[in-house]
């Protein structure tokens, strides 16, 4: 889907990515990268007393892993996203959960001569197919592939 041009994309097109297990190492590395050492990500003793019971992944880690799973090729006609609004964290991602992305084209609208706006319903799901992140995404997509 991510290598298709605006004209090739059709409402109803769907992309289900491969999966990724969010590990202990992922959480620690993300805390190292962001300096976000909040209890909820780093202290098993503490979270055992919360509703989650186990440490939960940082919001940004889940989104980063999702970007990696989508692997937008560098020559993709998808130029970029327009803002990111209403990214809803529907359920926690716990250490050991396996997530994948599920995208569906919901509408498309020509913008100018060379490009159009494609609206996608983007859901990140866990191994039980429960949504963990739900986001409507708008992407600017070129009508033609880049030369060369």
């Amino acid at each position: 889907m991510l290598d298709k041009t605006f004209d090739e994309l059709q409402v109803g097109d769907r992309l289900i990515s491969k999966g990724r297990t969010i590990t202990e190492a992922d959480l620690v590395l993300f805390s190292m990268l962001t300096q976000d050492w909040a209890d909820i990500h780093t202290d098993s003793e503490f979270v055992s007393r919360t509703v989650f019971k186990k440490r939960i992944a940082h919001a940004g880690l889940t989104l980063a892993a999702c970007c990696g799973l989508l692997r937008v090729p560098p020559d993709s006609p998808v130029e970029g996203l327009f803002g990111m609004n209403h990214i809803r964290f529907a359920a926690p991602v716990l250490v050991g959960d396996t997530i994948h992305a599920d995208l569906e084209v919901v509408s498309k609208e020509p913008r100018d001569e060379g490009r159009g706006v494609v609206s996608l319903h983007c859901v990140i799901k866990n191994q039980r197919d429960e949504p963990v992140v739900v986001a409507p995404v708008k992407a600017m997509v070129r009508k033609e592939r880049a030369e060369g």
Partner: peptide
Amino acid sequence: ENYCDLSGDWVGT
């Protein structure tokens, strides 16, 4: 670089 390593996105833009 660490962000790209961690996200697994060495292909994307």
